[in-house]
Design a protein around this nucleic acid. Structure first.
Length: 403
DNA sequence: AACTAGGCT
DNA sequence: GTATAAGCCTAGTTG
């Protein structure tokens, strides 16, 4: 095999940025942050470093005297100023919302808007992340310098950052993401009939879950019920507790515990799978993905006494690894097969991003149809599951606006 | 370097 | 009685 010159290889795998957009965003954010600082100082009565959790805590709980009783504390004993704490204080003082907005905007500005342009390669005009293939315990990749697996998407200002990831003129981005891949893996490995059937029918799995758990017809599932069921579906693969589900949904702990009981009553094989995984982890000292990737838990196998808390934490990791790791195995298989298929067909698309259950390619506009079909077929065919893999394809000129 | 916080799947 | 959802990376503050 001839050596591919480094630069030629890099030109195949970077992603272009809209530097003008990021520059405009940086200026806008600086203005807004300046306004917020003035207002915050006005409410507090003096200037301080809002980025300092210590100084912020002093301002809120000292100077302004906000009620701190019952609030979470950090490991070093001071009052937490994390977002869930601040959310609970929203109604107590008008400065709290200003701080929340300041937090969000300064995160976006420092970590993305101002950092990304500095990492554009001067030779290629693109950013070239590093994908670490041996950096995780589950088999996932990780991404660094910059991390392109945590580019904002949830908020409006965040999504504008994604809009800055663009295709070259004459090219488009193809985004292909696995639909509910971890739940499909859970359905397959647990062989739970209700869950398998929902996927076989192509149903909205979160709505189906809500209907089953609450015992109502699918037509009566409200957005709120679906939201809770969606959170619960994710939480199950993490080894959920009533407390955790309550925190993430807003339910009371009692309601959350009842929900979980109903969930396992409706999906009994899921419960059996979770218990079986915990048991084998303790007996063998390891768990594995469908493809045989292992994660070891010597502490669970050891006869030495374990703190209940440490055991529970290790069990949650053991529950999650085969699910998350199988998803990682699947997308890795797809990536290898996809690059081979692109080469064989003489297609010019470049694989430019992997975000755990999503691939992004840049493809010439006249090859979009053929490339999209190929990507979908290869990703969906990467592994045969009893809950078949499904891939959604979107196209766009940038990563934030795709359809 | 430790800690806190927060962005993503 | 206590802690309580898996896996990552980066930025800013503090000592």
């Amino acid at each position: 095999m001839p050596l591919v010159p480094v630069l030629a290889r890099m030109e195949r795998n970077g992603v272009a940025l809209d530097l003008a957009l990021l520059s405009e965003m940086s200026w806008d954010l600086a203005q807004r942050l300046g306004e917020l600082e003035k207002e915050i100082y006005g409410w507090v009565g003096y200037e301080f470093n809002i980025n300092s959790t210590q100084q912020l805590s002093d301002a809120l709980f000292g100077k302004l005297g906000l009620p701190a009783t019952g609030l979470r504390k950090t490991s070093s004993g001071s009052y937490s100023t994390a977002v869930d704490t601040l959310e609970s204080l929203k109604d107590k003082h008008p400065v709290v919302n200003l701080i929340l907005e300041h937090r969000q905007l300064s995160k976006i500005k420092s970590t993305y808007v101002d950092a990304l342009p500095k990492l554009v390669n001067t030779k290629t005009g693109r950013v070239h992340t590093s994908y670490n293939q041996t950096g995780t315990v589950t088999g996932r990749l990780s991404s660094s310098d910059p991390n392109l697996q945590n580019i904002p998407v949830r908020t409006e200002v965040g999504r504008r950052v994604r809009n800055a990831f663009i295709a070259e003129p004459g090219w488009s981005l193809i985004k292909a993401d696995y639909s509910q891949v971890e739940l499909r893996i859970l359905a397959h490995v647990s062989q739970d009939p209700a869950m398998l059937e929902a996927f076989a029918r192509g149903e909205d799995i979160h709505a189906t879950t809500a209907a089953a758990v609450y015992g109502v017809p699918l037509s009566e599932v409200t957005p709120e019920l679906r939201r809770v069921a969606k959170t619960a579906n994710f939480a199950v693969t993490y080894g959920v507790t009533g407390y955790g589900l309550a925190q993430s949904t807003g339910m009371s702990q009692e309601e959350a515990e009842k929900f979980i009981r109903n969930y396992f009553a409706r999906f009994p094989k899921v419960k059996e799978y979770l218990d079986r995984t915990k048991k084998t982890a303790a007996e063998r000292g390891w768990v594995e993905t469908l493809l045989g990737r292992r994660r070891y838990f010597p502490e669970l196998k050891s006869t030495a006494p374990m703190h209940a808390q440490a055991r529970a934490a290790a069990e949650r990791m053991a529950i999650n690894m085969p699910i998350q790791g199988t998803a990682a195995d699947i997308i890795k298989i797809a990536m290898v097969r996809l690059q081979k298929a692109l080469d064989e067909r003489g297609l010019h698309a470049k694989l430019i991003l992997q975000v755990h259950d999503e691939l992004v390619l840049e493809a010439p506009d006249d090859e979009l149809e053929q490339t999209s079909a190929l990507v979908k077929a290869i990703m969906e065919g990467a592994l045969k599951l009893d809950a078949p893999l499904k891939v959604d394809i979107k196209l766009g000129r940038n990563w934030g606006e795709m359809e």
